[in-house]
Design a protein around this nucleic acid. Sequence first.
DNA 1: TCGTCATATCGATAGTTGTCAATGCATTCA
DNA 2: TGAATGCATTGACAACTATCGATATGACGA
Lengths: 94, 94
Amino acid sequence: MPKQFEMDAKTFKALSDPNRLMIIETLQNGDKCACKILEELNIVQSTLSHHMKILCDSGLVESNKVGKWMHYVLNKEAFEAARNSLDDIIKKIR
Amino acid sequence: MPKQFEMDAKTFKALSDPNRLMIIETLQNGDKCACKILEELNIVQSTLSHHMKILCDSGLVESNKVGKWMHYVLNKEAFEAARNSLDDIIKKIR
DNA sequence: TCGTCATATCGATAGTTGTCAATGCATTCA
DNA sequence: TGAATGCATTGACAACTATCGATATGACGA
């Protein structure tokens, strides 16, 4: 199994949960701390932390700690890589 | 939870398995019957059938029966929809 | 230093997923 | 019509996932 498939699969898996897509949307207007994200979702804090870990592990989201807050921000390059993978497929469809 | 997130999540979930990405690649050069796809993967026939069902349910792949063969073909519009979802996100990242 | 706040981690649990072997169901061909 | 072929379905199982409550960690303020 080529490594690229494994990597792309991991990215798409990170995108494959509705709550995570909602988290991504709340991050579209710039970085946010976890507590702000939590206000917009119907999940408890530990669940959010779980989802943030998956998003960070996939590379789609980056985090940096500021005082006692964790700031999360979307990683444009990672989204572009996923988009480009889909584009490569689309271009080859006759 | 907005319905669009549920739909996009389902598409990305279909893309989140390396074997399915490999199936998609084998279909990039046009339609194929299941037995041809099977030759390129290290899985048994029932497992392939399972993956094809997930791909078809997501809309990424369409099938039509020709005699005793099932022909599978990539659905360009579905891939474009997924690509556009990612594009919408990318455009909003400052 | 002590309590509080923000977040991560742990443990448990129900549900989902990927995989295979076995079987079923059409379709084709001899 | 009976056997063979192509594919789907079923049942079983181990691995993974999403979720929660409880607890730990680490930073800040009083």
